[in-house]
Computed example of a mutant assay.
Amino acid sequence: MIESHKNRDLEEKIDQYVNGQLSSDEIDELWAELIQNGDQLDYLKTVANTKAVIESEREGAATILGMDRAWSYAAAAVVVLLVSVLAVINMPEFQSAETVEPITSIELDYYRSEDGVMEPNSEQGVMKDALALANRGNTAEAIQMLEQELESADDPAWSAKLHLNIGSLYYNDGSYDQAIRNFQHVVEKQAVDALTREKGYWYLGNAYFQLNQLDKARQAIQNAYELNGAYRRVAKHYLSALATE
């Protein structure tokens, strides 16, 4: 009975974590508990992955069904972080802190207006259509669509997001050199929001890691860590492990 109550409390904390409702200290305490509890790590993985795939399974809808519209941009960043962290965990046993691998794939982003709804008549509708193609396996066509949009893009922030998603598509296709070129464009642009720049460095580091260029991987991940955002904890874990490589 006591154990069952404890598990329910832990699951409530996990739900709060995924929804961005825990403080930094509470997150640290949660991870300390999860490392000792393989079953609850499985629960965390299920919750995180469910949130991450909701949008792609609603690609034809004008509104996102089944999703709380109050789920904020910050909460979305938490889900991306969870998926990245779970990429280095071998369920149900947590691997040694000295062992990491580059992330296997990058979750594809959808961009929404401030009220959480995709604007089908805006330039971001191109992003939605391209990523819908990619989710159906038409990666080359999706890349071509985004590269054509990039040719006419005059907003540096929009160009950065296009490069970020083109790089992500190349990364998921195993074309790491092309991914690196696009991620470098992201981090080099001045008019880029903090999360986009942080993603650019994090993905750039993993692309170098895939090519076994560890010095460049460490530097890029260090840059992501120093931005002190959504990827700080997972970046710190990677830096600690890569320091022994």
Score class of each variant (00 low, 15 high):
N138L: 09
L30G: 00
D215K: 04
W71Y: 12
V47Y: 03
A230L: 07
V192E: 00
A61T: 12
A194K: 13
S122H: 14
L169Y: 01
D42E: 13
Y201L: 01
A87H: 14
R58W: 13
R58D: 11
G20T: 00
I143K: 08
F209G: 04
K6I: 15
E12F: 15
L150C: 07
V53F: 07
E114Q: 11
Y208E: 03
Q124M: 14
F94N: 04
L10P: 03
Q148D: 08
Q95N: 11
K189C: 02
L34S: 02
L82Q: 05
N182H: 14
M118I: 15
P156H: 11
R58V: 09
A142P: 04
G125S: 13
E107M: 04
E198A: 13
I89Q: 01
L133Y: 09
K13D: 11
Y43C: 06
L41I: 12
A75M: 04
R112S: 09
V117W: 11
E11V: 15
A32Q: 12
E3M: 10
F94I: 07
R232D: 02
E26Q: 14
G174Y: 09
G38M: 01
A97Q: 03
G60C: 04
V234R: 05
Y201S: 05
Q178A: 14
S122D: 10
Q36E: 11
E98T: 11
K199F: 15
V79P: 01
E188Y: 05
Y171A: 04
Q144R: 08
M145K: 09
A70W: 14
G38N: 05
F94W: 13
N223I: 06
L204G: 04
S168M: 06
N138A: 14
A160F: 09
